[in-house]
């Protein structure tokens, strides 16, 4: 894999891991090899049982030049990963990042 892809995905993981710790009160990360959409992927799934994110859309909307202000790093992580899923309830948050292998 090209260095840039490794760096991008590692950074996305770092971003979400930090979220899980600081906003979710800690949680779990699971790394896995998966196959979907006819490709192979490396996935990282983060789960926490924190208070959840009230407005996901807003949390994701740190545009290209405004991330430095606040931002939960969610938008950034989404741009850095090849696939991104988020699900949040008042009982907790699950974020799944995927990096295309083939």
């Amino acid at each position: 894999m090209r260095q840039i892809r490794i760096t991008r995905f590692s950074t996305a993981i770092s971003e979400i891991a930090r979220n899980t710790v600081t906003h979710g009160g800690g949680g779990m990360m699971e790394l896995a090899h998966e196959a979907f959409d006819g490709r192979r992927w490396l996935t990282a799934t983060f789960t926490d049982s924190g208070a959840g994110i009230a407005d996901i859309e807003q949390a994701m909307s740190d545009g290209f030049s405004t991330a430095k202000s606040l931002g939960l790093g969610l938008g950034g992580a989404k741009r850095l990963a090849d696939a991104f899923e988020i699900e949040s309830t008042p009982q907790g948050t699950t974020v799944k990042l995927a990096c295309r292998l083939t």
Binding site: Q3, I4, I6, T7, R8, T11, E15, D62, G63, F64, S65, T66, A67, K68, G71, G73, G76, R79, L80
Partner: peptide, 13 residues
């Protein structure tokens, strides 16, 4: 290089 590109993608210039 890879860090520079990633930072830009994160909006951290």
């Amino acid at each position: 290089p890879a860090v520079a590109m990633t930072l830009v993608e994160l909006g951290m210039t």
